[in-house]
């Protein structure tokens, strides 16, 4: 068991973003997290990696309590994440961006060792040709890959992916999917938030469904996509329902 989230609640004023959510991630597993917009998916990531402290509940990483630790401490223990809205360090080069991850991540590498890791990771995500470019000058798809590279350079045990497929064209999507598979094959556990249903269903070992901050279903992709509550939640959002149906078809 790499991660246990136990009865976690997070409220902003009167708004309940997470309502007693519990989930578990096994070593080497890919857990897909889906749910309509505003369901609390990104808040879940923010609570896991320490951006917000939850009002209630516990978060255990490899059995150790990490609830309320600041993000940099969570990061150093081995949880890396990407952001839904990319956050490149714009005035630094692509390689420097990734070197930051390697330097301050789980292995706390020296600058020199980190630079080697950065080269490796950049080759892995296919940005080797852009290493000296300023990160701010990359296009959206490249920025997404940079987010992934930066997170990988931290040598995480658990990787949180927040909509890495959004905004990519079909070609880029299938490249990214195969990258994610290879990352898992290297032994990294993954939680991925995704709207692109066919990708979630294809990649995930299990799927976790959030709606209005609460868990409404959990299980294998097959079980979840036929779960009545899930279909109902998505019917509120016809487009999403359509995507879900396409995905399970």
């Amino acid at each position: 068991m790499i991660l246990q989230v136990q009865n976690v609640s997070k409220r902003f004023g009167g708004l309940v973003a997470l309502d007693s959510v519990s989930l578990e991630v096994q070593e080497g597993e890919i857990l897909g997290v889906i749910g309509p917009n505003g369901a609390g998916k990104t808040t879940l990531f923010n609570v896991i990696n320490g951006v917000y402290a939850p009002q209630e509940g516990l978060i255990l990483f490899r059995g150790e309590n990490i609830t309320g630790l600041p993000p940099f401490k969570v990061a150093r223990r081995g949880i890396a994440r990407t952001h839904q809205i990319v956050r490149p360090l714009g005035e630094l080069s692509v390689k420097e961006n990734v070197t930051v991850g390697a330097c301050f991540g789980r292995e706390n590498l020296s600058l020199k060792a980190a630079a080697r890791v950065a080269d490796e990771v950049l080759a892995f995500v296919g940005l080797a040709a852009k290493t000296d470019l300023l990160a701010g000058k990359l296009n959206v798809a490249e920025k997404k890959r940079l987010e992934l590279a930066r997170a990988l350079a931290m040598r995480p045990a658990l990787l949180l992916l927040d909509e890495v497929l959004a905004g990519l064209n079909p070609n880029e999507v299938s490249e990214m999917i195969s990258s994610i598979r290879r990352i898992r094959d290297q032994g990294v556990s993954i939680i991925m938030i995704e709207h692109l249903m066919h990708a979630v269903m294809k990649l995930s070992d299990r799927v976790f469904v959030l709606d209005h901050g609460a868990q409404i279903a959990e299980g294998t992709p097959e079980v979840v996509s036929s779960h009545p509550k899930v279909v109902e939640a998505y019917l509120g959002d016809p487009q999403a329902a359509l995507r879900l149906l396409e995905g399970s078809a």
């Binding site: 420097e96 070197t99 330097c103 301050f104 991540g105 789980r106 020296s110 600058l111």
Partner: peptide, 25 residues
Amino acid sequence: KSKFGLGLLAIREDQDASQVLGIDP
């Protein structure tokens, strides 16, 4: 030219993102 300095540059660019990357701003 140091690792510490790289961390500072990351803070300059985006303090919140730098924390997620393991830097103690």
